[in-house]
Amino acid sequence: MIPVQYCTELSFSPGLTELAVIAGTEPPAIGIHEVPSTQLVRSLPLPGIDRVHTWSRGVVHLGAAVVHLEQLTWQSPRTWRIVRHRAPDWQREVLAEFDEEHSVGLRAVPGGFVVVRAAEFLFGGADGPLRDPAGVPEFANREVTLLDAHAGTGRIAVVSKPKPWAPGRWLTVLRPDLTVLAEQELEFEDHYGWFCGPDLLVTFGEWQSMTCLRIADGELRDVGGTHLLKQNRSYGVHSMPLGLTTLPLRNLIAVEQEYGLPTLWLDAVTGKDTEPPPYRDRFPVWASPNGQYLVFVADHSRLELATDPAFAPGDVEPDRV
């Protein structure tokens, strides 16, 4: 069990030997827990941060380092920092500090991480400086928001809009070299997105709309979707992007609902209701990249790590550890 007040971000190390957890502790800190025992092995403090806000945080465990984002001010433009803690002493290292009115995102990519701010893509690893590759021509006059990155393939999903403000929104999937793999103009503005495997993308946005898209032949093809019931959505225990979890191993989407309502299980391809896996009433807030491990909500103050039975022969209740 992992004691937390509320969970905001999780990241497994590449070898699945550790789990980094940003939790609402006082004082705020990143807890590094051993997998599968969940024993706390180290705590990385977040000095100067008096509250942890889900939407302004990100964490990536690189094995030999842990990287996270900090938002220092509420005023516009906001001040952001990219911070790295490196083994063996895990000392705090500020890689960059900048002012940005737009949201900033952090995700794992093969061998490192990417930070997206406005139309700038910053890449880094467990050591060395940040790298700022050439810009993306398609984003020359757009403001870009990072949705997700696929840690296995390095594909990056973003939403962009013109600047200054003008009609039009686009969902774009980029290759690791930042060339465009596929792009689609959006009917609704999507605020969140998750890869469910390298070729399937799930987005969530305006009017509680959820869309399932297949990446094929250089195109984004709508293959399904639904509108979630706002009155049933849970906003208390977990804030977005938690509260909606893709499970690539099972091709499922788990949607957390208000207390007393069961987890809503959707097919990741069609977006339609489907039979729940054998997790009983537990909600998985995170899955390891290969789907082996799931992190469940045990109650309002603890998280539980388990092995998904779909990863091994048999379809039994996940082992509690």
Rank of each mutant, 00 (worst) to 15 (best):
L122H: 07
G105R: 10
A151F: 01
G135L: 04
A134M: 01
L178T: 00
R117H: 11
R131F: 01
A118Q: 08
Q184V: 13
R142I: 03
R107A: 09
A108M: 03
A166F: 07
R92T: 05
E185V: 13
P129Q: 04
E101T: 15
D148R: 09
R155P: 06
L122I: 02
E120C: 06
A151C: 00
E183Y: 00
V115C: 13
A157P: 03
G124F: 13
D127G: 10
H150P: 04
G128F: 07
V114C: 07
E97A: 13
P129V: 00
G105S: 11
A166Y: 08
S160L: 00
P167D: 15
V159D: 08
R92C: 04
T172L: 02
R155C: 03
E189S: 12
V109K: 04
E97I: 02
V159P: 08
A126S: 14
R117W: 05
R92L: 14
A126T: 05
E143S: 12
S160T: 07
L122V: 08
A108N: 09
P129L: 05
F139P: 01
T153Q: 05
W170T: 06
E138P: 01
R142Q: 13
F98L: 08
V115W: 12
T153E: 06
P162N: 08
P137L: 05
V159R: 12
A140N: 03
A157F: 03
A149P: 03
L178N: 07
Q184R: 15
P129E: 01
F139W: 10
P176N: 13
E143A: 09
E138V: 14
P110K: 04
L130I: 02
F113K: 10
L181C: 11
R169H: 13
G154E: 05
A157W: 06
A96Q: 11
V104F: 11
R175D: 14
L95K: 01
E100K: 06
D132E: 15
G152D: 11
N141L: 15
L146K: 05
A166W: 07
K163Q: 12
A96P: 10
A108S: 09
F123A: 08
A182M: 02
V114R: 04
L146R: 04
E185F: 08
D148F: 08
F113C: 11
R92V: 10
